[in-house]
Write a protein that binds this DNA or RNA. Structure first.
Length: 356
DNA sequence: ATTTGAATAT
DNA sequence: TATATTCAAA
């Protein structure tokens, strides 16, 4: 039993003596197959379900499977199967369908998460409420719980040491571990909507704009959010990403409870395609978690940002907690090296270029 | 009985 | 690292 489904490995295993190869995750049919095989192999000796149950199996088989096996045995009889032992080393390659897909917190999704939290209030923001508030179809409370856990860890980090360091920056030019100059150069450019994911040439077919929908969200008012939200799922069995584009017509359909936006949903991608993975997940905490909520973290002291604004035109954080459209909040440095706080900033194209 | 969230697994 | 899953406690 292995999650490795490469034919290569399977064949080698069988050659190496394995009688059966099952690709995880195991499901009913796998069990049935095993039994069919076992029964067929034990030419003549029919095992009753009772014997099966009491034979000290290392694992228990639930009723459902039991009856399924029962039926199977009935259907196929005990010896009706094939004979050739060698051939019976059959390879079972199975449906990748049973396992849940892995949610990927894209910018759009994360922003929604932030908005929800902001809307609810950090103190009352528990998974269930966030879930309701986000109203994204296909999103489960567990998803949020997990993300929230991470988010809280981030907040804690930021709160204790009011700064964010970048691992990529070797030089601590300012005597602090805060962002050095060099990071500034792209600040402005980073606002423009960009394509952030592309399809791997040979596999997905044509190039597609997979992300970037949130780039301009910061420019919209709370109730005119970007009409397109992209969420990604990654299939557990391949490296490919499933691409889902929840693009719904404005107006029609259910609206999110309080910030009447566009209906949202998670699409379990119907068009699987291989994509490069780096972009989204390669973001740092700041990119991921920097958001309006930072307002509430005392240690960050964002409300002082205004004092430093001159020099960087696009900072726009406020301390009235209404500035929910930030895609970014973090620490910046002005041209003359002063620390500056936060503001709206879309992350860059490659997600890796600077420390954020 | 349901939900949370820390811990742990993948 | 990011996300999922588990499970004791709320």
């Amino acid at each position: 039993m292995s999650s490795d489904d490469s034919e290569n490995v399977i064949l080698r295993s069988l050659e190496g003596g394995a009688a059966f190869y099952i690709v995880k995750p195991v499901n009913k049919d796998d069990i049935k197959s095993v039994w069919r095989y076992a029964v067929a192999t034990k030419a003549g000796k029919s095992l009753s379900i009772k014997e099966i149950g009491g034979s000290g199996e290392p694992f228990s088989i639930n009723e459902d499977v039991n009856s399924a096996i029962n039926n199977e045995i009935r259907k196929y009889g005990t010896k009706e199967g094939r004979q050739s032992t060698e051939e019976d080393k059959e390879v079972e390659i199975h449906q990748p369908a049973t396992k849940k897909q892995k949610l990927i917190w894209t910018n759009a999704l994360h922003n929604r998460f932030l908005q929800a939290i902001h809307h609810i209030g950090l103190d009352k923001a528990v998974p269930k409420r966030i879930l309701e508030c986000m109203s994204v179809r296909g999103l489960a409370r567990e998803h949020i719980a997990s993300h929230l856990q991470k988010y809280r860890i981030f907040l804690r980090k930021v709160a204790e040491r009011g700064g964010i360091s970048s691992r990529r920056l070797s030089g601590r030019s300012l005597g602090s571990n805060l962002a050095p100059f060099s990071m500034l150069k792209n600040v402005h450019r980073e606002y423009s909507p960009v394509t952030r994911a592309s399809i791997q040439p040979g596999l997905g077919g044509s190039t597609i704009q997979a992300l970037g929908g949130s780039s301009f969200r910061g420019l919209l008012s709370p109730n005119q959010q970007a009409p397109s939200n992209n969420y990604l799922f990654r299939s557990p069995h391949s490296q490919s990403l499933l691409f889902g584009n929840a693009n719904s017509a404005n107006g029609a359909g259910a609206n999110p409870p309080s910030y009447g936006g566009v209906p949202h949903e998670l699409t379990h991608g119907t068009s699987p395609m291989q994509m490069y993975q780096s972009q989204n997940q390669a973001r740092s905490y700041l990119q991921n978690f920097g958001g309006p909520l930072l307002n509430r973290v005392g240690a960050v002291g964002i409300d002082q940002a205004a004092n430093y604004r001159s020099g960087v035109g696009d900072i726009g954080i406020t301390n009235n907690s209404l500035n929910t459209n930030n895609n970014y909040a973090g620490i910046r440095v002005t041209t003359d090296g002063h620390l500056i706080r936060s503001g709206q900033m879309q992350l860059n194209n490659n997600g890796l270029s600077n420390g954020f």
